[in-house]
Design a protein around this nucleic acid. Structure first.
Length: 507
RNA sequence: GUCCCCAUCGUCCAGAGGCCUAGGACGUGGCCCUUUCAAGGCCAAAACCCGGGUUCGAAUCCCGGUGGGGACGCCA
């Protein structure tokens, strides 16, 4: 089995296309097939090498890999259509020779005018066949005169073209609704419908899995396969991914590209898992035990691949639900390696204005505290604000908030601050256990308890009324104090100093 | 306009004629846990688009309607 993903490098990788790539990859990896990446850059105007690089980067980020592609080569290359022009030219010539294609001299303006008229008259919007029966002599003289001509494929008349779609079943079109498509533009560049067919045939693609928007191109392509003597591959058309309102997913709905989801702080495994859930369910009928079926929907990519099958893909379009993506992200955030999360969150800290040295001790410290944030947050971009108290600590700043100041200036909290400073003064390294011990002594010393005791302590240690769990914050701050000198971690202060500062500030 | 595809809780899926008093997940509401916010646990509300057939029996099959989407390009 050979499958492919064939994006055109005209922009960012869209999540809908990413899902198509994913389903192809699932199939290849789940059943030992080959996955090919091919770049369809025949639109010279819009294709850019930057887009190609971005698409490759995003596919890699998602964790996809391919067996053949423009960046790694392969036996059936090249894998960029712009580098295969001679192939299209020779096949087009062949079709011309055997009379299955013909030159078309119609201009864009003429075509548009006639199309509009025909659409009103009988609803047919395809090519009207004006150049279909030009004589050889005619064509030769016009060519000799220097007139530019495109090459069109002659769609056979009065035929049914059908195929068995792997997700939809039987699909049938009558050739009367298909106009002769351009296969080579006047400039000598192939048109999409022709290039895909030549490439898929030559590259030995056995299953074409693509978006539903291509379903009506399929009959043209099948006819092209036949005309050139190729055996058509199996086709599968995936329903499209829509926005929450079931209109086509667009910027107006928020993020639409893989790159945007990355910069919003989603983990690739979460996006992959979520995307797989649109239009497909990883549930396996064989796992139904005692009438209760498998409940989880969260699986690593290789497991999704193992379970994947085209026949289980839904026929209807699915709406993109960022809430559910966020849920998947929370899950993967919780099970990810802290060291990796520390690495991944670096740019988010940078954006938040918190610079963290790349020194190993700094990264080690970050890794040790990152679970404080990732255990409660939905995305990586929320991490810095959760952890800011470790880096940007200041008594003054904390007391600038009216509500906090009022609360801290009350007798109870003031007593807690003073007692905490005193207790901490003689305390060696703090960990959760020691902290509980200290808190207990503060409780005894002040007679405060519950919220009245812990709320002031939280404000002292985090400078905020809410936030990371104290159990985790305490040892984190304590470690930071030890690391601060020369570690490249700016302005980290230990518990002892914080308590003392507050005690002083509150009088 | 013509052709094609699709139609189960707000959303994503399960359901391939009786197992359905329609199941799961996200989200929502409530309760529990808890020194806060979360997380976690438990419970709840919530759907077969409409109309005709076929059948002893239809969410499941057929036809029509309606609704949504796609295509009709010298874009892909």
């Amino acid at each position: 089995m050979r499958v492919r993903f064939a994006p055109s490098p005209t922009g960012q990788l869209h999540v809908g296309n990413a899902r198509t790539a994913l389903f192809n990859w699932f199939l290849a990896r789940g059943r030992g097939g080959e996955f090919i990446l091919r770049i369809e850059d025949t639109d010279v105007e819009r294709s850019t090498i930057e887009s190609e690089a971005a698409i490759v980067r995003d596919l890699r980020w998602l964790g996809l890999d391919w067996d053949e592609g423009p960046d790694i080569g392969g036996a059936r290359g090249p894998y960029r259509q712009s580098e295969r022009l001679h192939l299209y030219q020779s096949y087009a010539q062949e079709l011309l020779t055997i009379g299955k294609a013909y030159r078309c001299f119609c201009t864009k303006e003429q075509l548009e005018a006639r199309r509009a008229a025909a659409m009103d008259a009988d609803g047919f919007a395809g090519y009207d066949g004006a150049c279909r029966r030009l004589s050889v002599a005619d064509v030769d003289t016009r060519l000799a005169r220097g007139e530019k001509a495109a090459i069109r494929f002659r769609i056979p008349e009065n035929r049914d073209v059908g195929f068995t779609d792997a997700v939809r079943g039987e699909v049938r079109f009558h050739t009367s609704v298909i106009g002769d498509p351009v296969i080579m533009r006047a400039e000598g560049v192939p048109a999409y419908n022709f290039a895909v067919v030549v490439d898929d045939a030559l590259m030995g693609v056995t299953q074409v899995i693509r978006g539903e928007d291509h379903i009506s191109n399929t009959p043209r392509q099948i006819l092209l396969y036949e005309a050139m003597g190729f055996t058509p591959p199996a086709f599968a058309h995936l329903s499209l991914v829509m926005g929450p309102d079931h209109a086509p997913l667009s910027k107006r709905h928020g993020a639409t590209s893989v790159a945007e989801f990355r910069t919003k702080g989603y983990l690739p495994e979460a996006l992959v898992n979520y995307l797989a859930l649109i239009g497909w369910s990883p549930r396996d009928a064989t796992e139904v035990v005692d009438g209760a079926s498998e409940q989880s929907e969260l699986f690593p990519a290789h497991e999704l691949a193992r379970r994947f099958s085209l026949s289980a893909v839904t026929h209807s379009a699915g709406a993109f639900d960022e809430e559910k993506l966020a849920w998947a992200n929370r899950h993967y955030l919780k099970i990810a390696e802290p060291a990796r999360l520390a690495e991944l969150s670096l740019p988010f800290f940078h954006n938040a204005g918190i610079s963290i040295a790349s020194a190993p001790e700094a990264m080690e410290f970050l890794a040790s505290v990152i679970p404080i944030a990732t255990s409660v947050v939905s995305r990586l971009d929320e991490v810095p604000s959760r952890l800011a108290f470790l880096f940007n600590y200041s008594v003054e700043q904390a007391l600038e908030h009216d509500d906090l100041r009022h609360e801290m200036l009350a007798d109870g909290p003031r007593a807690v601050a003073v007692a905490l400073a005193r207790e901490l003064a003689d305390e060696p390294r703090l960990d959760r256990e020691r902290f509980r011990h200290v808190a207990n002594r503060v409780k005894v010393a002040t007679g405060q308890k519950g919220r009245a005791l812990f709320h002031p302590i939280r404000v002292i240690l985090t400078g905020r009324a809410e936030g990371p769990e104290l159990d985790l914050a305490v040892p984190a701050i304590d470690r930071g104090a030890d690391l601060a000198p020369g570690s490249g971690l700016p302005r980290i202060t230990g518990c002892r100093e914080r308590a003392a500062d507050f005690s002083k500030a509150l009088g």
